[in-house]
Structure formats: structure tokens, C-alpha cells
Design a protein around this nucleic acid. Structure first.
Lengths: 146, 146
DNA sequence: TATTGTTATACTCTATAACTATA
DNA sequence: TATAGTTATAGAGTATAACAATA
């Protein structure tokens, strides 16, 4: 087994590099944690969302989301209010500062994504993206089996 | 921007799942940390290696390698001796227990890799692996630029 | 002065589960 | 009894840099 040709190893290294490059945008320039950035992205475009929806859409657990939301609220990025239909739920809404921050970050994030993908011929880009989804399904199976 | 179609996000989630599935082999069953497993793989097949070589081949830093090596030595997996040519260097050598452990883990690791890749048609497998390398080069560029 | 490798330290992240409020 | 969300706490992992030994 050659480490350099072992796909999981290559994949993890690539993800670390891509992650690092992205975090130089949201973390270094805008002082957002990765979790906060994910929540911001998940909330964008939604007028209002329940916390449980955000938990699903970000693949984060409720504890991480709870802490990230607290920080974001302090920073004036979003608003919480109780759900009148079921007061256990919290309804989340981006404030103008949150929307503005998101609008600043997105173009930079997309530019980095494009810089990466533009290195591949268009048909390989499509294949790569499809492969990511297919492999995710299989990886989920492996994780469930243990 | 849709989080689910943002390639860096998909990539990071996939890497986390694959990582978790692999660590259920080396960590849960054999009590190896990820760093130790990488070092084991990097040393396998080499009769002897300098610590600096391992640092390069594993993409770990010297501090992590130093700590992982200490644990592995305690576990009787490898041996250290000073390099007679330059006594600042350490020469590393897997002991029989280390080789045996590696021989047990590799088939399981390769089986998981195959299970993942077999979900893709052969030509997509090749494209995917090539894409990982191409993207790694670009990601390195991004990281360097900041 | 530079390099190899180890260690100290403080810091951040993570995981488990206990807890409150509501249903 | 079950769910949404928060908080406490302990443990793991991380980053910086100081350090000893050698060159």
C-alpha cells in the first residue's frame, strides 16, 4: 500500500487544504468560525428557519449550533424568537448585518471554488461532482456498519 | 450559493465520513491514532528511514511525529537509533510487532477503499483520482496565497 | 548559526451527558 | 415520556515557541 495512492489519504489531505484556504476567507478576514459560516450559508435565502432545520442542513449537532448561534447573536448577525406554534422551537432570522456579511463572503468563496474547479476540463468537473455524491452514500454505509 | 452544491463543503463532509470509517479500523480495533497509522504506513516497505523522511511523507509536523513515535516505541512497534553519519538524525525501523500490525490493518483499509471506489464506473474512478491530484496542486496554490 | 528532535504551555475543540422548558 | 435547546465539565487535540544536542 502506497500512502500517496491511497484514495482516503489523498482525499483527507485535499479536504484539509481546501478547508484551510476557505477559512482564510471567513475566519481570518471576517472572524467567523467554520460552524458560524455554515449556519450563515444555511440561513441565507431563507426568510426564517427553525433551529432544527439548520441542524439538518449544516450537518452540525445541536450543541455546536447552539454555541455558534449565541456568538452570532452577540455579533448582531441574527435574531432569535420563540415559535408561537411550539415554544420549544426557536425561529432564526438573519439581520441586515448578517446578510451583508454573507454577501461579502460568498463571492470570495465562489471564486476559490472556481479557481479549483477550473483546473479540470468541464466533463471532469461534472464527473468529480457526481463522484462526490456517490462516494458520500457509500461512505455513509461504511460509517453505519462500523 | 447552495451549501449542498458547494464543492468544498461536499468535499469536507466526504473526507470526514471516509476518515471516520477508516479510523474505525486503526483506532477502534487496533488503538492506533491517525498519526501513528500514517507513520506505520510510511515506514512499511522501508528497511530504515530517517525521521525527516517520515515527516515529509506523512504531511505531519515534527512535533506530532515525535509524539506519535514515542507512543509507538512504547508499544514495541518500532525502534530508534542514532544516525552514525549525523547524530542529530534518528533512524527508524519497524519491529516485527509493527510489521504484523500493519499486515493486519492494510487489507481492511484497502477493502474500504475498494468498497468506496467500486461504486464508480472504472473510467470515473480514474478521473476522480486524477482530479484529486490536480485539485491538490491548486489548493496548495490557494493556501500559499492566503 | 542552522538543524533535528523533544518538551512545556496555553489554547481550542470535542464528546457525554445533565439540565430546563415545553409538549 | 419525548423533544428543543442550553450548559457543565472533562478529555483530546493543536499551535507556538523554548530548549538541548549536534553540525
Amino acid at each position: 500500500m502506497e500512502l500517496d495512492n491511497f484514495m482516503p489519504y489523498q482525499l483527507v489531505l485535499l479536504a484539509e487544504s481546501v478547508s484551510q484556504s476557505l477559512s482564510s476567507v471567513y475566519r481570518d478576514r471576517f472572524s467567523l468560525s467554520r460552524d458560524e459560516w455554515r449556519i450563515l450559508a444555511a440561513l441565507s435565502g431563507l426568510d426564517q428557519a427553525k433551529t432544527t432545520t439548520i441542524i439538518e442542513r449544516t450537518a452540525l449537532d445541536k450543541m455546536r449550533v447552539s454555541r455558534a448561534l449565541a456568538t452570532m447573536m452577540e455579533a448582531g448577525l441574527l435574531q432569535k424568537e420563540p415559535d408561537p406554534d411550539d415554544r420549544r422551537n426557536t425561529l432564526l432570522k438573519l439581520l441586515p448585518a448578517g446578510k451583508a456579511l454573507y454577501a461579502k463572503i460568498v463571492p470570495m468563496a465562489l471564486a476559490r471554488e472556481s479557481f479549483l474547479l477550473d483546473a479540470l476540463p468541464p466533463e471532469d468537473q461534472a464527473t468529480f461532482k457526481r463522484a462526490l455524491k456517490t462516494l458520500q452514500d457509500r461512505a455513509d454505509q461504511l460509517v453505519r456498519q462500523g
